[in-house]
Design a protein around this nucleic acid. Sequence first.
RNA 1: GCGGAUGUGGUGAAAUUGGUAGACACGCCAGACUUAGGAUCUGGUGCCGAGAGGUGUGCGGGUUCGAGUCCCUCCAUCCGCACCA
Length: 925
Amino acid sequence: MDYTFNAIEAKWRQIWQERNTYKVTEDLTKPKFYVLDMFPYPSGAGLHVGHPLGYIASDIFARYKRLKGFNVLHPMGYDSFGLPAEQYAIQTGQHPAITTKENIARYRQQLDLMGFSFDWDREVRTSDPSYYKWTQWIFKQLFNAYYDLTLDKAAPISSLIETFEKEGNSQVQAVHECEQHFDAPTWAAFAPAEKEAVLQQYRMAYLAESWVNWCPALGTVLANDEIVNGVSERGGHPVEQKRMMQWSMRIKAYAERLLQGLDQIDWTDALKEQQRNWIGKSKGSSVHFEVKDSALQIEVFTTRPDTIFGVSFMVLAPEHPYVDQICTADQKVAIEAYKQQAALKTERDRQADVKNITGAFTGAYALHPFTGQEIPIWIGDYVLASYGTGAVMAVPCGDQRDYDFAKHFNLPIPSIFADQDISEAAYTEKDAVIANSDFLNGLETKAAMESAIAAIEQKGIGQGKTNYRLRDAVFSRQRYWGEPFPVYYQDGLPQLVDDALLPVTLPDVDAYLPTEDGEPPLARAAKEAWSCQLGERMEYNTMPGWAGSSWYFLRYMDPHNKETFADPEKLAYWNQVDLYIGGSEHATGHLLYARFWTKVLYDLGFLQFDEPFAKLINQGMILGKSAIAYMGPDQKMYSLDMLPAEKEGFREVRILIDLLNDDESIQLDALKAWQPQYAQQEFVCNADGKVLVKREVDKMSKRWYNVVTPDDLCEKYGADTLRMYEMFLGPLEQSKPWDTKGITGVHGFLKKYWRLFHQNGHFEVTDAQPDPAALKTLHKTIKKLTDDLERFSFNTGVSSFMICVNELTEQKCNNRHILEQLTILMAPYAPHICEEIWAQLQPLSPSIFTAEYPIFEPSYLTESTFDYPVSFNGKMRYKATLELSLTSDEVKDLILAKPETQKWLEGKTPKKVIVVHGKIVNIVL
RNA sequence: GCGGAUGUGGUGAAAUUGGUAGACACGCCAGACUUAGGAUCUGGUGCCGAGAGGUGUGCGGGUUCGAGUCCCUCCAUCCGCACCA
């Protein structure tokens, strides 16, 4: 009987669906386990073999946990708002909802082919109104919250308003940007617009004018992580800085907790380090410098307060608000010229141009807070307006950029480090002894910092301070295909739409582009196209892509709830995601925002956990191997081995990898039929009459013609083979090029497994007592497999199955007990074939996933003897089989008496003999 | 520049606590069976060497009876951040 994988897989896919095998409900009698994949954006290209890699791993783990008796939540859905569908809509006029629906159908079909154990009843789509109703609701909670520093958590804005009414804002400890101080009567006297303007500076979700990355070609604002090398990630359009009224999220308030929280979760160091980097905590001190002949004080932030006596000038960012006020009349022209020059440069140019030192003198001087010395104030574009206070105290002897600036403009470089040479470069290490610094003299960095901060605080000119690089996240986009805000404007003030009117559904528009006067696409919607129409107008912006993905893992717990985003009891039952698998490209985007929202929801009492993902694994990317052919100047296509040494005039063309034979030669007729430009193609063949191509590793993508789809492989080898092969390729975390060649090995293995049950043309197992050799093989495999799964080593798991089947074949084992246990072990990896075998073994059982996971019994592995490797000076020479009951001394004597030992001793007396019981013998000569 | 990861046969890789380097596969070589095979089976396969043997985990050093694994210097590749005060 042959292994007819196509028929078997189709059969079980249907049965699982009919029986709803993978449906899961809350079950308090079982421990829960939540296995989550990063849900995909359903693109028009469909899935390639790289996408399912993580899904296969998580599916294996989910099935394993289920067999182990856990109640496993393993859902899937779609991150279905996004730019590609909108771009397609702009080009074709087709509503993005239609495109999205079609793409989802295709994804579903492909995912089903792979035999995943998702509970599809829990599917979520971020673009579905029943889902984004709750995204809007969460936005409202953020709007109605502020960060209370005394409680160190988010709290309702209503309690802040109460405080304002009682005592104004002078005693309020909160994260805010409000410069204004007011008492209760003043607050009461504020007009509604004034009150709202104040509140906006406290709200977690707030409207403010901010510098944004504006992409004119796309007509929208982009987040930092949507920009790659200064151009938009999608489309590669230029991006410029622009000041605009935007919704933002006060994520900065959570900087410290987002940092601390990393210690509680099991993620890779690489990923944690990326988040730490992004949050960018630095400790130091603020210092105020008085400006000579002026009431102004310039505040700087420094991480090296110990070097304060080394300050010889100050540098402000060209955009710093004080520049115009302090600039002297005779420097006005130079400063204006420099400011204009700096403004012309895009942020990208400013970054690229590290070598060029530019700046201008304002003519003004600051006074050193300790020495009273006059310090020239310069402006320079190496100081960023958006970080710290937009001003630095320059310590040229201790900072290389300050040093370069000083050298370039001939500013003094006083030394404050004992015995350090600063004639060539700044001394940036933190291990020098401070000198020429009054009360800091003779101190080392750490002590000097402490006493400098103490002195600064005592003088009242600053204080010890922690700074974060993390910026508040811009939350509005001028796009169509995203969540509408639950916001309208009344007297120009933003107001929330009442819960009863949610969701505010996406209105139809006549075109998916900004309006003539630059308003977002939603401004095109007719009044009656809106599901509700309040105030003067609705908010025309939509939410960014990360809105829906910041909480989808919560909705899976209770996807159909109409009363709340998820029932508190269900949230409590499923709790954190126990295992999250996805790509590392989301390190500073999605994974940070999801943690942020989780913490806010926790603070507001909606969740019982404040970290969403307890353990996270990044799967590596599967790369494609492009086929590169060479076109000569004569327009002929040359075989790789027929290229002349001089390749002048030759160009590389990528051709579809499906047109290749196994020996990397082109199927010439197929190429001619592929694209019209090759219909009449002539070739320069090699001696074998072939045209060979070069293979190069690229990202797997349609545009490189190197895509391999899971569909073809499922058809040819079956989903079980593909699942196992993807795992067999190597460690999950590692990126690797896709190579289909090895798949026959895995396919052959499944056939060999099948043959264990079908030796005489029909299914046959014996019920006899299993023999010790088979039991040993089985239990060795149980132990190895379980260990491998617990450390997510899926590739070595597959090897263990191969070893097991090889050994059982060798032993001619067709014992029911042994093969049944093996089948359960293998079911997470190859569910279809194992379910089919199981149905033969246990006809009354509804599914192999109701079986019990095999229990490892160590006694089957106990041995009475051991093959001791005997090594001389650490080099293994021969093996000696000895009883394990022997003591180390007895082993030593027996080994020394062996003729092989005498041979290798070459007449010498061993200096030392090391016996590690049950491991090794080493003889030192 | 800073941070992180990786480096082992012709190829993908394994070696979990310092204890037989190269498991398991692919490929290749030889053979069996077959009208035929992209089927199946058997044997071999790190490199050098006829062999005995030597040698071998990016380079160089160290610790150890013993190092792919621990420590130090350097090199290469990939990823992230980057004028962050």
